[in-house]
Simulated scan of single mutants.
Amino acid sequence: MADGAQAGPSASASPSPPYPTNAKGCHPTGNWTQKEAAAWVQLQDTVFHKAVDGIKDKVQFSKSLKGYDGPLCEPVTVQVQFWTITYGSATGAETTSATGSPPDYYFSMRSLKRTELRIDGREDHDVYMPKSFYAGDRSPCVGTLLAVYVGKPLTAKELPTDIDFGDSYLATNSATFPTKRVADSELSPPSAPNVCDPNGKPTADPSATPAPGASTYPSFPYKPYEPTPSFSLKLNPTHG
């Protein structure tokens, strides 16, 4: 090093892009599995809120940062689907034991809306939620679920059979989909499942009927299942 010369700052290596582009300026997807496609979609989708009242308004798929996460050479088929989920108690909201443990809960699903997209990261896409999805006046026995997934509409065998509700702010509400095609999902629980009868109808004023135990919700984890062994698309339509 010459006299008086000072060493400059050491160069830090840039992180490798997860989806680098090729000579054509896009990321090849020809050999992707559905799981790999869902992982890329998970980077793109976001649930946005209205600026005024804070109510969730849409699901947005953002434009890729060129050379980092796209764009893709071939678009991916994506479905955005919204359901209402009606909850009922197998015992009419009675406790199941002398210890006061919560009753068994069950649920059925009804599709509100499904939107199919072809996205490659070259532009933004918005999917607006049904107006009733986060309605403040919905039944205390009704919750909602949205899912973002790749490929064709989910089959009956790919729909959730387990839903877990936390009984504190530290716990996460989640629906378990038995498929790797789901990139993201968001569950909004019922406000008072403890007052619901087996048909998912409220039988009492939720504010005057505390649930067993300290929480409004059944103790975590709480895993409801389909209401009857005859659960089917005919009885509980799930997509359309």
Rank of each mutant, 00 (worst) to 15 (best):
P210E: 03
D53N: 15
V41L: 11
Q44S: 12
K157L: 10
D126S: 12
G54S: 03
S97Q: 02
T228N: 10
S10D: 13
W32P: 06
E94L: 11
R122Y: 03
K152G: 07
A147P: 00
D205F: 05
S207R: 09
P20R: 02
Y106Q: 13
K113L: 11
T99Q: 14
V195A: 05
A208H: 05
F61C: 00
G151D: 06
T155I: 01
K234C: 06
P18W: 00
A204K: 11
T91Q: 14
K50C: 12
P237L: 04
K63N: 08
M109N: 01
G25R: 06
T176S: 13
T216N: 09
C141F: 00
W32F: 15
A5F: 13
V148C: 01
T144Q: 07
T176L: 10
I119D: 05
Q34L: 14
P71L: 10
R114W: 03
L146H: 12
Q60H: 09
S89C: 08
T86N: 13
D69R: 07
P190V: 02
D126F: 12
F165G: 02
A5W: 12
T203M: 11
M1E: 10
P218T: 06
F82R: 05
P28H: 03
K58S: 14
A11G: 05
R114C: 02
K234Q: 12
